[in-house]
């Protein structure tokens, strides 16, 4: 099992922490291996933020994600910039209020969640990243729920632990419900515009 994934959004959405939690879950709590890399440089100041993970049950040799199996896009810019590199038939998880899709997503399995709205319901917009992590966990099933919960617990300060665990649960449940609704593998959960509509 070797999976490449990318999580991208804009600065302040906590995409690095989200990737960190997933990497930690994979390598520490799941006993596998994970390598996380980030984009630095001028383009990473302010605007776009992105992190990539290579997760495997074998030691990771090549450090970078070349053609991700999974893209988690939290902003429109992140979607536009990275959707093209996703593996044919790969998965796309989006913040559905922030990412308008186009035909570039039509060969992917797309799952949407209003992560920011859910986070706001919890009282802190900032936990949208952990909502997304929960959603990721439910949809992709790359990692066990226990491992990711343990990683969330580790990665956030004690006083925000409960809030973040709630965020995880909400995201996870949203994913479970979405899958139960039958928006499983064949159909996309978010309407992807066809060529003619764009």
């Amino acid at each position: 099992m070797l999976k490449e994934l990318r999580i991208a959004g804009f600065g302040g959405q906590g995409v690095i922490l989200a990737a960190h939690i997933i990497g930690r879950a994979a390598s520490i709590h799941e006993g596998g291996y994970a390598t996380m890399t980030q984009n630095y440089g001028p383009e990473a100041r302010g605007g776009a933020a992105s992190a990539a993970l290579v997760v495997s049950d074998q030691p990771v040799l090549y450090p970078y994600a070349v053609s991700p199996d999974i893209l988690v896009a939290l902003s429109q810019e992140a979607y536009s910039r990275f959707v093209g590199e996703v593996k044919e038939g790969g998965m796309l998880l989006v913040e559905e209020d922030l990412v308008p899709l186009d035909q570039k997503a039509q060969h992917l399995k797309v799952y949407g969640i209003p992560a920011t709205r859910i986070a706001e319901e919890l009282g802190k917009k900032m936990v949208l990243n952990v909502v997304m992590v929960g959603f990721f966990c439910a949809i992709t099933r790359v990692l066990s729920r226990e491992a990711v919960v343990a990683a969330v617990t580790d990665a956030v300060p004690e006083r925000f632990r409960q809030l973040n665990l709630s965020a995880f649960d909400r995201g996870f449940q949203y994913g479970v419900d979405l899958l139960a609704k039958g928006a499983v593998t064949e159909e996309n959960s978010v309407a992807v515009p066809q060529e003619s509509e764009v």
Binding site: G14, L17, A18, K124, N129, P157, F160, L163
Partner: peptide
């Protein structure tokens, strides 16, 4: 020691 990240909820919350 906390391993905090430069961004994410741990700082701003």
């Amino acid at each position: 020691m906390e391993e905090h990240e430069s961004e994410g909820c741990s700082k701003e919350c």
